[in-house]
Design a protein around this nucleic acid. Structure first.
Lengths: 199, 199
DNA sequence: CGTGCTATTCTTAGTTA
DNA sequence: GTAACTAAGAATAGCAC
């Protein structure tokens, strides 16, 4: 209740709703489901890459968190989450052992929160060196009675980015997150820790 | 466990990681945090709109579900979720009262699932006529001890789209969703029902 | 804080190899 | 299927208001 007072406010750019022609490339394309399945998959792949790129850029340029869930035409789930705001304590203001301990405690608490949340969701620890973006298999994304659809799309694995703009020598594997508490409380989004993904 | 076997697979378009120049417009722009706060906010607004548009297009063109979480530079959360795949029963195959009742039961169950989930998360019913995209106030997105940041950004409310491509005369206010069960199980994403937003 | 403009760059549908 | 190419059109940075 405290949180959701503005829930229900319509929030949608008018430009979105007024568009009839969403495409580019050689031909225009109506804003409707692409009937041809193979064309649909091709468009899916290209646009999925595009939107992940946009999400990455938005998160970096504006120093914000962006999370993205995409269910493919085959029911495979791709998720993306940006690295999140870095924890940048004002080192100038750490002038005592007490302050230093307080910061350390804060960071430890944040790390434990992340680990706990991760275990709740995935039942196994995450590898923090991996993925700001990964897939789960189609089987996880649908009911047993809905598996009739083809479950192809076996290998969508991409190379991990190697040109991480975030310094590898960062002392902490995770960055405590301004939104973490909210995310933990709401339990409808999971933080994936600081991956290498958001280049 | 059943679901997350491929967890950890790196899944990231190489084009994302290799980019250094994410911008367009008049000048190029380095893929780094925009230092000027007012410029950062402007870029945020424009690109937020852009990515929501992209998410909408992707969901419609490929008939898939897309969810998006964006924390603004001011800590305000904007969420978006596509309408999801429509429930399109093969009417030709409804040849008996029994079949019809079964379909009706399925839909009722789905609606109740959605309402239950919504109540769990928001503690109040959602207005299904509104929003595929909305904001919650900054206060909801941060800890009490982290509210030092300016909490401006008062009115980001946009006009509800009026040119919904989905027929208003659709008999059901919500569309049972292939991914709903997964979402309900995982509890890290919430379905917002069928809004008018995904034009 | 928006809205509108425009030059410039980016995205991507269709195609080819 | 995948990877590269390219033309057409979309997105947007910087301005002006």
């Amino acid at each position: 209740m405290l949180a959701i007072k503005t829930f229900g406010i319509n929030y949608f750019p008018s430009s979105v709703s007024s568009l009839i022609i969403p495409s580019m490339g050689r031909n225009k394309l109506a804003l409707k489901k692409i009937d041809n399945p193979s064309r649909r998959k091709i468009t899916y792949s290209k646009r999925r890459d595009g939107i992940i790129k946009k999400a990455t850029e938005l998160s970096v340029l504006c120093d914000i968190d962006v999370g993205l869930l995409i269910f493919s035409p085959n029911g495979r789930l791709t998720t993306f989450s940006s690295n999140g705001r870095s924890y940048n304590p004002d080192v100038v203001n750490i002038n005592s052992v007490h302050d230093a301990i307080a910061h350390q405690q804060f960071l430890n608490d944040a790390i434990q929160n992340i680990e706990k949340l991760t275990m709740e969701i995935f039942h196994e620890p995450i590898d923090l060196q991996k993925s700001g973006c990964f897939q789960v298999p189609p089987a996880a994304t649908r009911d047993a009675h809905l598996t009739a659809e083809e479950l192809v799309d076996g290998n969508g694995n991409w190379n991990p980015p190697q040109d991480d703009h975030q310094p590898k020598e960062a002392p902490l594997p995770v960055s405590p997150h301004l939104s973490l508490e909210y995310l933990r409380t709401q339990k409808h989004w999971n933080l994936q820790g600081r991956g290498q993904g958001s280049a």
